[in-house]
């Protein structure tokens, strides 16, 4: 009990006067949202609602993108406050977030993961490698961008993209659903 008193009350008091740890929400670029709305309408997709479950697949990255995707979950970026969350099973996912220059050795695993996902779904290619193969596109072991295997809805370039850029992309998906629905 003594320990609780010592720790809890000063912290609560501090919380009342100090600013939150979290960053203000990033604003997705309007033209990206509009392009996604156009894609939604063209595909006549059903609305997914204002919450998205994300399944991430590393299809060849150097793990730099994974570091920044993980950082989206820290207390500063806190992606869950936007209704975004990562899920373990592709069967629960609305978004397939893919990184890496699609290695030949990962193609089948990526396709199988995508096949497990229910429709409608978004496919997002994150990082310069996922966009077009990046530095690795001329290799015997690499297919190029993620669009070599799957139709991609949104590209988030960067080497690696920052957590803020990644969040902008994810929020653009949510905005597009709101605007398009």
């Amino acid at each position: 009990m003594q320990g609780w008193r010592r720790l809890l009350w000063p912290r609560l008091a501090q919380g009342l006067v100090s600013a939150p740890l979290t960053d203000p929400p990033p604003v997705p670029p309007e033209e990206v949202v509009q392009a996604l709305v156009a894609r939604l309408e063209a595909a006549a997709q059903t609305r997914l609602g204002r919450s998205l479950a994300i399944r991430q697949v590393d299809a060849g990255s150097c793990n730099g993108c994974e570091l920044e995707i993980n950082a989206m979950q820290n207390v500063v970026h806190d992606l869950e406050r936007f209704g975004l969350r990562f899920v373990a099973s592709p069967r629960h996912a609305d978004v397939l977030l893919v990184t890496g220059p699609l290695t030949r050795n990962m193609r089948e695993a990526l396709l199988r993961t995508a096949e497990c996902m229910p429709e409608p779904k978004w496919v997002v290619a994150a990082g310069d490698c996922a966009v077009d193969g990046g530095s690795f596109k001329d290799s015997y072991a690499v297919e190029g961008g993620i669009d070599a295997a799957l139709p991609v809805d949104l590209l988030i370039p960067g080497c690696p993209p920052t957590p803020t850029q990644l969040l902008e992309g994810m929020l653009a998906l949510i905005e597009a659903q709101r605007a398009g629905g």
């Binding site: 060849g60 570091l67 220059p101």
Partner: peptide, 28 residues
Amino acid sequence: YLHKGQIGLMLGKPAPVAARFAARLSGD
């Protein structure tokens, strides 16, 4: 699964260009 052909891509390149691949061997 992540084999990207790093060594093959570094061969024949000037050192500053090859360095970009060394920097992406393991991003962390």
